[in-house]
Computed example of a mutant assay.
Amino acid sequence: MVGSSRPGQPLAGYVVALACLVTMGVYAFMKWSSMPTVIVTREAGGRHGESVASRALSVMAMPSVLILCTALFALAPLWTRMVNATPLGSGLSSMGQSRILSLVLAMLAVLLLCLHVGIVDMFTGRGPTMPQAASFGLAAMIVGLAIAFAIQGSHRGVELGAALAAAGVVTALAKSLPTVAMALGSLALLLLVGYNSMKLGWESMERLRRRHESGDR
């Protein structure tokens, strides 16, 4: 049997997600009176008309995404249990799997909270800009995923250090060069996920191959 086939729910992740959801509501409530009903996000020109964003829909956007993501994470243990019943299972214990789910959900909640702050402040014209808020959120997501991959055993020390260094660079650039920081953060996140997904896939295929070879004997 590969690891535990009954991973638990990411309870710590739920706590962080709930805290971020409450923070989103409090922040929007505090800023609501200073937010115009609509703002123009793109002036009319050429073949397109004027684009506007509604205050109510904008305030609800990130909280809605967080609620949906949390609901999907509630189904993640079922999916993990199904995968663990095959040779492609990660080999992690139930506690290890729950820790990874909690960590990813928590960092995702922090990212969405940062985006929520950026959206609200886009209406008020005060506070961090959207690129700045997104950069801070991306840095948190990079750190969370790097640690999650390390727990899963797909990271060596050098790779983990590189991911943490990338998050540090994104955070350092967020204030002075927010657009550059956001672009670098997005690229680092894509590279982190892509590289480790291929690595984990290769490790799973190697486990499957070794199992078949031992079965042939």
Rank of each mutant, 00 (worst) to 15 (best):
S54C: 10
A53V: 06
Y14N: 02
V40D: 09
F123T: 01
A106W: 02
M95C: 11
L208H: 09
E43K: 13
V104L: 12
A76P: 00
G45N: 08
V59E: 01
R55W: 08
S94E: 13
L189A: 08
F73Y: 15
V180Y: 06
S135H: 09
G194A: 13
L190V: 14
P36Q: 10
A139T: 01
M62Q: 08
G13Q: 03
R207K: 15
L108R: 00
A12C: 07
E43C: 04
R207C: 05
S5G: 12
A133K: 03
M182T: 07
T70A: 11
S214P: 00
A71Q: 07
S98E: 12
L66I: 02
V52D: 07
I151E: 04
M24F: 03
S197V: 09
S33N: 15
S33E: 14
V2G: 03
S5Q: 10
K175R: 14
P131M: 03
S58F: 08
F73M: 11
M182K: 05
T70F: 03
G96E: 15
V52R: 15
S214T: 12
G215I: 09
W202Y: 12
G46L: 10
N196H: 10
P131G: 04
P178D: 04
M24N: 00
V193P: 01
A133N: 06
V26K: 01
R210Y: 06
L108F: 05
F136K: 02
E206V: 15
G8R: 06
L177Y: 14
A17V: 03
G201S: 11
D216H: 11
L75F: 10
L187D: 05
R126T: 11
P131L: 03
A76D: 08
S214R: 15
L138A: 03
M82I: 12
S58P: 06
M30C: 09
